[in-house]
Write a protein that binds this DNA or RNA. Structure first.
Lengths: 271, 271
DNA sequence: TGAATAGTGTCTATAAGACAATATCCC
DNA sequence: GGGATATTGTCTTATAGACACTATTCA
């Protein structure tokens, strides 16, 4: 940030006289801080929200909480929390993942920062949104005393390709789409758009599958995310040519047809 | 943000009793706010920084300011400023562009939010970084009483492709790279990485050229950003096939060889 | 044996790279 | 005319899609 030195762009903010005292501040700096005090500025609250995405069957799903307080009481919302002063943004996102969904060691990437002035009716709150990819076998919504209530919801994407925009959320059994709290439908839409874009040139789809998987299941994951069918032959060729798949030599079990070979991602560490 | 309702995750924050009063808050909400007050949380400062990129000759350049106060006094930094409580993030970025570089109506896109705990030695400051693309003819660094001092600096990218990482900054005439303030070399590196990625599938390169341009100059822009030579034939074919170029019928003037035809971008509005 | 999906091989269409030939301007 | 770059056309190679055929499992 190129914070200005001379500044008093905000005459309506109270002129606080408390200067920050940090061990890294030298005595020369101390003098300068007298004329430049960032704490003069009003500050927004900052939260971190995580769009946890997974593919179950042929559906793109996400994990939500029902809000039990205002604003948007009763609406579903992404898991999130306030950024603490001693943690990085990513650390906050990982804390949220663990505390609210019981997930650790998942693929996590910063998505976008949402900062519309009135996105929260109470006060100015920015949210730094992340998205996480989790294979279906790791998401649980059963009762767990150490975790808050969770709900899995289907993401229905009402636009093609990478058009972008809000998505619709379909709760199991419900007939109409569920309106989400805040701008969370936009956040999920942004996550889907980003994921679709990445799928073409990165092996990110593997993050949504268990350790070993068949090429057909990988293709179904891609198709579910992209929302369109893919050519089987070229999908197969491209994946094998990418050098990122490793044949395990094992075969699929328990299917009523010829079993497919199981593959493994060669760099599971790519988080 | 899925802010928790019951909360008191931060026992060390002062329990403020000032509840926000907003016209959109209903009386039922008022009651709930008694048990849930986001202002209880300590808040970071938030700035917006803008990486202004341009291509001049065969060089990728950016616009910097020299800091005249601590921290990083004397170092160059990106233009930036504190987010005001009544403006959106993008509005803040556009305000910075106008106030610090005299630029308006330029391509602007949110890049990434940088939030390492100690990125500013004084206090916790997040910055939401944006990048702007400006054609070379619009960047001025001459003296202008309404603008702060500015410097154009060359961006030297020490990595290939989309590897990512900090870039080096070369100030005109200097022999060694210039160390930037804060994490601004990382921000610029992130901007270059993003730009390289977008160049393959979006017409974003046009934003760096004047209204009309030749195919050769467009190719030079692409090559400068990508840091590698491109095949002339296929570049030409791909651009013309994209349907985003429109021949003006005019020819280049004042060259000592056969003049090239001038083209125009068909959707300059794509900001 | 038949249903179902896996996996291989071949052909074609399309896009990318290489290269040659011609065009047009200024000096 | 000579130098320099633009523009067009053709050939070759790589990649993607289409399709036919064989393979393997279970019911």
């Amino acid at each position: 940030m190129g914070e200005d030195a001379t500044v008093s762009r905000r005459p309506n903010t109270p002129k606080s006289s408390t200067k920050p005292r940090l061990s890294t501040v030298t005595s020369e700096d101390e003098k300068l801080l007298a004329t430049y005090d960032p704490s003069k500025f009003e500050r927004p609250s900052v939260t971190v929200d995580v769009a946890i995405l997974s593919v179950v069957g042929e559906r793109l799903i996400t994990l939500l909480h029902r809000r039990d307080s205002a604003p948007f009481r009763g609406r579903f919302a992404l898991p999130g929390g306030f950024l603490q002063m001693d943690e990085s943004l990513e650390a906050a996102a990982r804390r949220v993942l663990l505390a609210k969904a019981g997930l650790r060691d998942v693929y996590l990437e910063q998505l976008y920062t949402f900062g519309a002035v009135s996105r929260d009716p109470r006060m100015r709150i920015l949210t730094v949104a992340y998205f996480a990819l989790v294979d279906a076998t790791r998401i649980t919504v059963g009762h767990d005393a150490s975790l808050p209530e969770r709900t899995l919801a289907e993401i229905v994407v009402p636009w093609a390709g990478e058009t972008g925009g809000a998505v619709e959320i379909q709760i199991e059994g419900a007939r109409t789409p569920e309106a989400l709290a805040f701008d969370h439908a936009d956040i999920l839409g942004t996550a889907v758009k980003r994921l679709r874009g990445k799928l073409d040139y990165t092996p990110i789809g593997f993050q949504l599958l268990p350790e070993v998987f068949t090429l057909a299941s990988l293709q179904r994951v891609h198709e579910t995310i992209l929302g369109r069918p893919l050519n089987k032959d070229s999908f197969r060729r491209k994946m094998l040519a990418s050098g990122q798949l490793e044949a395990t030599g094992e075969l699929q079990q328990g299917v009523d047809h010829r079993p497919a070979e199981l593959y493994r991602f060669t760099r599971r560490s790519a988080v």
